[in-house]
């Protein structure tokens, strides 16, 4: 059996907007093997969340989704019936959302909502489902799990609710978990706990994990592979060591310059910023999407679409025509401009 859990090839998502068509995701490709953590990073609005929703087939109704290939455990998950999709959702693949405060139904107990995830997909009794729920709540670090089952979402804090969401995603023992910025809405002190928990569970259950996050520090520690997205496209992808050790796209380097490195960044030194704004994705864009904010832009960058090219002998891919000549150059205008 192949250990490839998820394969995404040429995923496109577009949304009709009053001014035209918003091409939110443009030809995104990546894959997840069993036991891997793939991190998708990028600024808000770069298409990360829509990529996740497109995989789950949970896009808003008006959105259009196409892909050359979209498979889960080797089976296509695009162009299949809604009922076939709902058999997979919450079963073989589960999702954890950004907003724990509003992602649980206020009208039902935690227990009810945990159990129904299992009862929908497995022939088990309610008592067995309850047992599994208690077990998983304990596993995600919730004490007095038996009593928690009888509580309602409004009686729990945000951190607890996100733990419940994680336990819920694990109910059926899925092969793939997609976590869309699972810690953005939480207190800083709890963020690290939740991310460590996810990494731990991913190893323990031997799943594939797609983690969408802003937190590059976490990415560096837990990612097997990293997908850097900018304005709807993958601009760089590779192993964590490749992307963090030798970033090749000016945008990736810009992102990495935005975070301080203990011991390396001197006190009082200015952190990098990437000037400018993400371009609008309405309509078609000529050339490199990052051209408008890049320090190394040349005329050729704006002329034709730039393709994602692999570096010789590796899975490290970059969407930049000057990648090779820029090795060794500083990333952002930390000194040049400031």
């Amino acid at each position: 059996m192949s250990d490839r859990i998820l394969s995404v090839e040429g995923l496109e998502v577009s949304l009709p907007v009053p001014t035209g068509t918003l091409n939110a995701v443009q030809g995104v490709s990546f894959h997840v093997e069993r036991g891997e953590t793939v991190c998708i990073v990028g600024e808000s609005g770069c298409g990360k969340s829509l990529t996740a929703l497109a995989i789950m087939d949970l896009l808003p109704k008006r959105a259009r989704r196409t892909a050359r290939e979209l498979t889960l455990l080797g089976e296509p998950i695009i162009g299949v019936s809604e009922s076939a999709m709902s058999d997979l959702r919450g079963n073989r693949m589960a999702m954890i959302f950004q907003e724990p405060m509003t992602s649980l139904n206020p009208a039902y107990t935690i227990g009810n909502q945990l159990e129904e995830a299992l009862l929908r997909h497995r022939k088990v009794s309610r008592a067995q489902a309850r047992e599994r729920a208690v077990h998983l709540l304990e596993r995600v670090g919730i004490t007095a799990a038996g009593q928690r089952l009888r509580q309602y979402p409004h009686q729990l804090s945000g951190g607890l609710r996100q733990r419940v969401m994680i336990a819920m995603a694990l109910m059926t023992g899925p092969d793939l978990i997609i976590a869309d910025e699972p810690t953005t809405a939480l207190d800083v002190t709890i963020q690290a706990q939740i991310l460590h928990l996810l990494a731990e569970l991913q190893r323990e259950f031997h799943m594939g994990l797609v983690l969408i996050t802003h937190d590059l520090g976490v990415v560096a520690r837990i990612a097997t592979r990293v997908v850097v997205m900018y304005a709807g496209q993958v601009v760089e992808t590779g192993t964590a060591a490749e992307v963090f050790g030798a970033p090749r796209h000016p945008y990736t380097r810009g992102l990495l310059d935005c975070i301080p490195i203990p011991g390396k960044t001197k006190r009082g030194e200015r952190l990098g910023t990437i000037p400018g704004m993400v371009p609008s994705l309405v309509g078609h864009m000529q050339g490199c999407h990052f051209a408008g904010r890049c320090n190394y832009v040349v005329d050729a960058c704006r002329e034709a679409p730039i393709s994602l090219t692999a570096t010789p002998g590796g899975a490290h891919q970059v969407r930049c025509i000057r990648a090779d000549e820029l090795i060794g150059e500083r990333a952002t205008a930390r000194e040049d401009v400031a």
Partner: peptide, 17 residues
Amino acid sequence: ASDYIRTARAKGLRPMT
């Protein structure tokens, strides 16, 4: 349009549920 309906769908619950 609420988040918990998206959660319910993400669990694979049937449309009627």
